[in-house]
Amino acid sequence: MENRSISDPPPPPTGMPHGGPGGMPPVLGRPPPPPQQLPAQMFTTAAQLLDLTDKKLMVALRDGRKLLGILRSWDQFANLVLQSTKERIFVAPGTAPNQPRGLYADIDRGLFLVRGENVLLLGEIDLDKEDDAPPGYDLAEVELVQNLAKQRKQQEKVKEKKKVAMLAKEGFEGENLGEILL
């Protein structure tokens, strides 16, 4: 334990002496294979984003927007270039009276350059499922959904304000005061 570091490979299993009786005989003229360790270059932002390049992605932004587009370029800060982007807006069920199911609509936005700090997450879209509506949601008119979304935002704002005020009275400070993450 003393001088092991966390990036060391795990110790060999005990109770199986190398080349001892019962163990594997050493292969003549060839050293044993080095312990399996993943190459360091796998653990860079670049390597993670490289797999996603030219794929259709869902990008969730800090202000709650959801963008669907093809990732064409990026850098180490997760600044992104998205092609053929659509913004998808959702409204939860129950926003309007007599609206038992959620609604969504797409707006064409074209080319996007997103500054990295505004990115929450990027998700690769399963192409088998991309044309299915999310469970419980139906496609609707853009204007209808936009209006409902506006309403919803107003409702949430009021709720959030109340919550923050209540917490502040108890001496708590919100993690994202003044900014609603969705």
Partner: peptide, 25 residues
């Protein structure tokens, strides 16, 4: 192979199979 808890609240994640999450969030 992601799976979102309370999936119904996050419809935008329904067709997503793997994600890159920015460390800052």
């Amino acid at each position: 192979n992601i799976q979102v808890l309370e999936e119904i609240k996050y419809p935008h994640m329904s067709a997503v199979k793997n994600v890159f999450i920015r460390g800052s969030v």
